[in-house]
Computed example of a mutant assay.
Amino acid sequence: MIQSLEKGLAVLQAFRAHASLSLQEIARENGITLGSAQRVAHTLEQTGYLRRDPRSKRYSVTVKAVGLGYSYLYRQPLFQNAHAVLHQVNQECGEIVNLAVPDGEDNMVFVMRVAPARHIPVYLPAGTRIPCAASASGRAMWAQLPPAELDRKLRGIARIKHTPKTTTDPAALRLLIDEARRDHYAYADEEFFPGDVNVAAVIQDDHGEAIGAVNISVPKPRWTLARARQELGPLVIRAARAIGKHG
């Protein structure tokens, strides 16, 4: 383990939740000394990944950091094959279609999005993370887990109310996941964004392992949960199978 490299990567990750950070904040966010934060920030500045505002002395991430994820997004065969399918689904339903993958920390990361032109959606750039427990994509993924692993995840969920309708009770969440396992798709009703209903189905690889999820997001009151489930449930299942077949 190269500790200096580990620190540098951790500092970059700390900017996911902040537009800018001071040296003191970098140190506090990462549990390192001020001197260590200064050395890491200076190195990242000299290599072009951070810039330092000459007036406020605060650091922010530069566009060069986007390149760290470029190879993952551009070279993955899964994403290349999914692109056409997501556009086709968008044409069929006229709504926002997303592709998300798990990050290993109980979040789903949005890596691809196709939105209709008729309205401006919530800004969700590639890399946006949403908790598995509060998203249809995450629940669809959790429905594939062995019982013991699902039990562990449900015991460890952060009971945060993102909206008044967020499900935080593990027993209630288990019922939703059991339903997703039975129906082969999951749903979430205004559980992370107010006014948003989303349905999702998992993409499986050649070995039957869940590797991501197709998600369709629709707004209330134009869509009810019942209508979304009836019309979009079969659509995400079909899309997920099409992507997995050619992945």
Rank of each mutant, 00 (worst) to 15 (best):
L9R: 14
F15G: 06
H18E: 12
I26C: 02
E29Q: 15
S36G: 08
Q38Y: 08
V40R: 08
E45P: 00
R52H: 11
V61M: 11
V63N: 12
K64C: 04
Q76L: 11
P77A: 01
L78V: 06
L78S: 06
F79D: 06
V85D: 09
G94F: 00
L99A: 06
P102A: 10
V111I: 13
V111M: 09
V114D: 12
A115T: 07
L124C: 13
P125V: 03
T128F: 09
P131F: 01
S137M: 06
A140W: 01
M141F: 15
W142H: 06
P146W: 02
P146F: 00
D151P: 02
R152V: 03
R152W: 04
K153H: 10
R155A: 15
R159Y: 01
I160P: 04
K161I: 00
K161M: 08
T163Q: 15
T167P: 07
T168P: 08
L173F: 04
L175V: 14
D178Q: 15
D178P: 05
R181Y: 00
R182A: 07
A186T: 07
A188W: 02
A188L: 02
D189H: 08
P194E: 12
P194W: 00
D196Q: 11
G208S: 10
A213M: 05
V214I: 15
S217A: 14
P219L: 10
K220D: 03
L225N: 04
R227A: 13
R227M: 08
R227I: 09
L235N: 09
V236M: 06
I237R: 11
R241D: 12
A242P: 03
